[in-house]
């Protein structure tokens, strides 16, 4: 199972599309690691610098409809190449969400008030998130302040995370 804990990258915008996560011109790469330097290169977000701001972050927290646009799995791979295995948002585009779990990663939805609360309390601060997968909880910490938030994922998604993804799951089962 992958690691789902680490420092948090806050992306305070909705509708961040897959072209912003990884621009189409890098789709000619045939290895996942090659995508590493280009994550979020073209994102439209005030004050954001993909060269500086991604480093050392292993969890993304964002708003609505993250990962909309093209079906490219290069988007989760670009995250994976940067050791970001968990994205938390109000909701996701369908294909992106499925791609995350298919790769044994997590795309977790939280209610809008919860996301809003997290942004108010933690955005702009050096924030750490610890995932307690067994107990369906995130523990978020910054400046000595700590908050526990419970989440839910379906049994099917849980099984994918535990087997490491859909290829092994399906090949075994069907």
């Amino acid at each position: 199972m992958k690691n789902f804990s680490g420092n948090v990258l806050f992306l305070d915008r909705s509708d961040i599309n897959t072209d912003e996560i990884i621009p189409a011109k890098y789709l000619t790469e045939i290895s996942k690691q090659a995508l590493k330097p280009y994550l979020l290169e073209d994102i439209k977000l005030e004050g954001f610098n993909s060269q500086l701001d991604v480093k050392g972050k292993h969890v993304i927290i964002t708003r609505v409809n993250f990962g909309c646009g093209s079906s490219r799995e290069h988007a989760p791979w670009a995250l994976e190449a940067n050791n970001i295995h968990l994205v938390i948002a109000e909701n996701f585009a369908r294909i992106f969400r499925q791609n995350m779990f298919n790769c044994g990663m997590m795309a977790v939805e939280l209610p809008d008030q919860t996301i809003d609360g997290i942004f108010k309390e933690f955005a702009g601060k050096e924030t750490h998130l610890e995932t307690d997968f067994e107990n369906n909880a995130f523990i978020i910490t910054a400046d000595g302040h700590q908050q526990e938030i419970s989440f839910s994922i379906s049994d099917f998604d849980r099984a994918l995370v535990m087997t490491g993804g859909w290829v092994d799951y399906a090949d075994e089962k069907y």
Partner: peptide, 14 residues
């Protein structure tokens, strides 16, 4: 439906 590469892999395989 459009799918990601992993779904495509499983589609091809199974």
């Amino acid at each position: 439906a459009g799918v990601g590469t992993t779904d495509l892999e499983v589609g091809i395989l199974k």
